[in-house]
Amino acid sequence: MIELVSAERCIGCNLCVKVCPTNVFDKTEHEPVIARQSDCQTCFICEAYCPADALYVSPYADEQIAVDEAELAGNGVLGSWRATIGWGPGRTKLAALDKTPFIDRILPARTIRAAGVSDVRTPTTG
């Protein structure tokens, strides 16, 4: 779930407040605050939209963890999802790099469908 709005990086555009599908952030006089953390659905979309690479969504959906901003910045994690999907100037969009057309070729063997579970064989999602 969302763990960080970097005061240092935030440019105060409040785009995260506007785009969060579950309304986790509140606008303030300074950078937005994480007002309803337990409502975060860990979808990472706020990071994709943040133009300042100021947000961090932890991989753990159901537990809160402490994060170290300097470490995240040092490891290049801040802004990494936005970079992967190719948003921001000078980047190639992920759609054009999508390797879904090649995935069937490398699947280990024909998998059968487990009833009640989304199909593995059909390229449902990626």
């Binding site: 753990y60 159901d62 593995v120």
Partner: peptide, 11 residues
């Protein structure tokens, strides 16, 4: 721990 319900990878 994850929310990414994209089963294809588990193939």
């Amino acid at each position: 721990f994850s929310t990414i319900t994209r089963n294809r990878v588990l193939g």
